[in-house]
Each structure stands twice: as C-alpha cells, then as structure tokens.
Simulated assay, not measured.
Amino acid sequence: MKDDGRPLFLQIAEQIENAIIDGSLPEETRVPSTNELAAFHRINPATAANGISRLVADGLLYKRRGIGMFVARGARDLLLERRRESFGRTYIAPLLTEAHKLGMDAEDLKKMIDFWREDQP
C-alpha cells in the first residue's frame, strides 16, 4: 500500500470497491480474506478487517458462514451511483460555478469538453 495520507483501512476498502467497479470482482465472487489482504499488503489483519467491515456496513459485501466474504448483488450499481454523485459534487458543481462566473453556457462547456477530449492521446 502506498502512503497517500489516508488510513490504510480506507485504502483497502477503496481498492476492493475499484475491483468491483472494474469487474475484476464480479457480484457473488469471494473477496480475499483479511489474512490474505494483510499478508499481501504487509499490514495488520485488524486493519484489513476494518476495511472489509466498512464494505459490509455499506452493503457491498456479505459473509457466507465458514466460506468467506462475497460481493453483494447490486454492489457495482450502488458504487457507480455513489461515485457519480460524488463526481458531480466534486467536479461538476464547481465547474458550473466557475463557468457561470465566466459567462459560459452549456454549449460553451460542450465545445470546451470536445476540444480537450480531441487533444487527449
């Protein structure tokens, strides 16, 4: 795990969330155990357990007694909805505020987005 200033358990949770979103951990798939995560990342198993517990509390994972933790049905859709909402708050709302200050309308923004999209490799 890289030290990005956030608690390690949050980084573990986000890593699993990202795997759910990108499809590498499909719904109803077993996720690595806390001991497997701890060994892989060289962290305390309790830290990994905190990350897993957070995902269980959020309804993204569930436990099958004696087998392990699994990705819940609907987890990907739930994560996509949350991330889109967060994206809107973090990026779109400030973008619209700044565009308004600059006297830009939706068409101006679309042209700018198209310009920058074409400029990407």
Rank of each mutant, 00 (worst) to 15 (best):
E85D: 09
L8P: 08
V31I: 12
T34W: 12
R30S: 07
E85C: 03
T90E: 15
F70D: 03
V56P: 00
P26N: 00
A93C: 10
N50Q: 08
D105N: 09
A46T: 11
E17K: 01
S53I: 03
R89Y: 13
K63H: 14
K63D: 15
V31R: 01
Q11S: 10
L102T: 11
R82E: 08
T47D: 11
A72W: 00
Y62I: 11
K2N: 12
H100V: 02
D3M: 11
L10G: 01
R73N: 08
E14M: 08
T47R: 03
K101M: 08
I113C: 10
E85G: 10
R6V: 01
S24L: 09
R73F: 03
F70A: 02
I43D: 05
L61V: 01
A72T: 06
L80Y: 03
R73G: 04
D77S: 09
R84M: 15
V56D: 03
Q15C: 10
N35P: 01
L25E: 01
R117L: 15
S53E: 14
D4E: 12
G59S: 15
I92W: 12
F115P: 05
E81R: 08
M1D: 10
Q11A: 06
A38E: 04
E98G: 06
G23S: 09
M69Y: 08
R65A: 13
T97H: 04
L60M: 03
A72N: 03
N44C: 00
K2F: 08
A39Q: 11
R30A: 10
A48Y: 05
G5R: 04
E27D: 04
K63W: 13
I43P: 05
I20L: 03
F70S: 00
P94V: 02
E118S: 08
K111V: 09
A39E: 12
K101P: 13
R73M: 05
L10D: 13
R54T: 02
G5N: 06
I16Q: 04
I21L: 06
Y62V: 10
P7N: 13
E118D: 13
Q120A: 09
H41Y: 10
W116N: 14
D114Y: 08
L109E: 09
F40S: 03
R54M: 07
K101T: 15
A49R: 13
M104W: 14
L61C: 06
E28V: 05
F40I: 05
E27M: 00
A48G: 04
N35M: 12
R65Y: 14
T29A: 10
R84T: 14
D4G: 05
M104A: 15
K101Q: 14
P121I: 01
L102D: 14
K110Y: 11
R64K: 13
F40K: 14
Q120Y: 04
Q120K: 13
I67E: 07
R54V: 01
P26S: 01
R54F: 05
A39D: 15
D119P: 07
T47N: 04
V71Q: 00
A106H: 10
R64E: 15
A57E: 14
L96A: 07
L37V: 02
T90D: 11
A48E: 00
L95W: 07
G74E: 02
G103L: 12
L80V: 08
S24M: 06
I43L: 03
A49Q: 14
L102Q: 14
R82H: 06
